[in-house]
Design a protein around this nucleic acid. Sequence first.
DNA 1: AACGCTTTAGTGTAGACAGCATGTC
DNA 2: CTACACTAAAGCGTT
Length: 748
Amino acid sequence: MLQKILKILEENGIKELRPPQKKVLEKGLLDKKKNFLISIPTASGKTLIGEITLLNHILEDRNKKGLFIVPLKALASEKYEEFKKKYEKYGIKVALSIGDYDEEENLEGYNIIITTAEKLDSLIRHKVKWIKDVSVVVIDEIHLIGDVERGGTLEVLITKLKSKYNVQIVGLSATIGNPEELARWLEAELVVDDWRPVKLKKGVGYKDKILFIGEDGEVVEEYPLKIYNNSRRSELFNLVVDCVLDGGSVLIFCNSKKSAVNESRKLDLKKYLSREELKELKRIKEEILSIFDKPTEICKTLAECVGRGVAFHHAGLTYEHRRIVEGAFRRRIIKVICCTPTLSMGVNVPCRRAIVKDLKRYWKGKTVPIPKMEILQCIGRAGRPNLDPYGEGIIYVNERMNVKDVKDYLVGPVESIYSKLSYPRILRSHILSLIALEDVKDRESLENFIRSTLYAHQYGNISKILEDIEEIIRFLEFSRFISVDYGDGRYRVKMLTLDGNGISIRGDKDKEKYKITPLGRRISELYIDPLSGKVIIGELKKLNKKLRMNEKTGYLGNWDLLDYSTFYILYLISKTSEMLPLPWIRSCEENFFFYEAVRRDIDIDDIESLKYIKNAMILYDWINEVPEDELLEKYNIEPGILRYKVEQAKWLVYATGELYKILNIKNRVISQALEGLKIRIEYGASKELIDLLKIKHIGRTRARKLYNAGIKNIQDIVDNYQKVRSILGDKIAKKILQELMSSDVITE
DNA sequence: AACGCTTTAGTGTAGACAGCATGTC
DNA sequence: CTACACTAAAGCGTT
């Protein structure tokens, strides 16, 4: 088998395995019963180890499947393209299954499926049949199990894989402090190695010099920096120019979007660039400006910087922006990117010199030290294979910091990772899912499951988390997402009678049994936080009540009820945890949003409630065709954030619609509002275009063109076909007509 | 009055997974 | 939101 695999690799240009890869094979990677935890640096060939593992299973039995789990959708797409190119010619079928894209409705016939932890979890929740054919799961960046927001999902997923399915698990990890502990939990062979394809020099940067530091923390080289004149006096200017003049490229990691933009504005490399380079930069500049019809502020700023050979990169940029920047940087046209950690985790963007500018970051009301693991990930980006003799990872220090403290970031042990299973939002969702899948039926199976998690493995004592779970169970029960049998053989969807003090009377806790309700099942499948489910349901009922009340008293006055409901639904999805983080309210905006809330009869308790209103208004303007640049300026948000909000809203409106179907609310206005919203959010267009938007080949722009010409629906198109032709052109008009004929919409 | 330095008050804070069913400019 | 960095404006002294 090994020979067969090596031959395939060779045909794909891999002549020799790298030391860590050999090491893993020697330790028995091809033994399908053996789990592995492999902790080696980025870019040292981790992916290939995963590929070898997958090939090992699939080449032997084409009916088997291997999963490759990655943390980002962008990475999934990247790997998908790569694997497809490499392995499809051998008849191995590669599929991509991520949130917004599915290769096929049915993944039955595929061998390698590239997915995210959340998507796989969702697939399991939907009880896909092919799971039984999976014989190997490779988990990239498995150390993310220690991530507060997403680690819990990964942990539950791995626990399920370990206990319920008979698969080989291969975890690929960055350097962590406690690999042994993680390996023990995984029941995996541990392989740790620090081999890198390009040598990495670590150092501390001052104003005028770099101190390179050896593995023992001693200064091994003092590298003086030439002082280049720079009118804007960026502290990092010398550090940057020094590298660029030597044919290198630089990544500067910042702790905020603002500081990334600022740094990139301060740097001007124009006078160090050739005529050809400047010409190419100008072309890219134009490309950036043409993403929107009217460039937004951030586009202009980015374009301006790019003209000087520098770019910034953060979540405020749209994916198009980011791709342009990444591409130009890889092609060595853009010399410097000032970025937030987006780039440290994301796609492959190596550089010569990686500079870390900040060691602290704002988080939940405090400035906290950035974990060493993350700093090392940033620094690890240095060293482009075949381009750089070595990479340089540099922490920049200013007057307030002292070199000694900084050294600890570069040498010595890294933080250990710890289970974040107890993070309530994630836990809530998974407890519900476990009950839905009948993995947890009663107290005993619940405790058994928890005992097999990393949490239990690390903390031993699970009584603390069981207390949290107890609270979650009561919440799920109270929300009627599960029904409980207290030991008398009867499942109840309601808590037992309360005594005078409001404490429920029930039987022996240990005899409790749990069952999912239809509502709970749907929430689990929709993959929303049960708490969000409760909020959505509660608010839908409230809206229904308002509308009913209005029928009697007319207290909503002149409001168009459909429009009122539409806004209310946007408001209600703004209250869910999936919509976090909410936009910031500036003090000058407070009155505006408060007025808006009062006007719409929505209760305001605190500043948090105003954020819901702001979030809802952003979405409301979006669906009412407010031009993007105007909208962004009005609410002081960035294009990337708007896109993200719209994406979230799309999903949540769908979920709201699904929950509405299950609930026993029958309200024509609400149904209509929900139906309309699905389309309006997707296309960002107002309701009069909906009829047109439902037609294939007609989007926001074409619909608006037609509408303004008086063509408002399907019938109009048929009746005025010549006019449609003149507006949209012959080809498109023909397509549309064909579509209408075939889809049987017209009865003529 | 123009300039430059220091103090102070105000402001804003990283990223990105999940449903479902097909084709925007 | 238990901190912090950054910035614009204000304060103050000098030429």
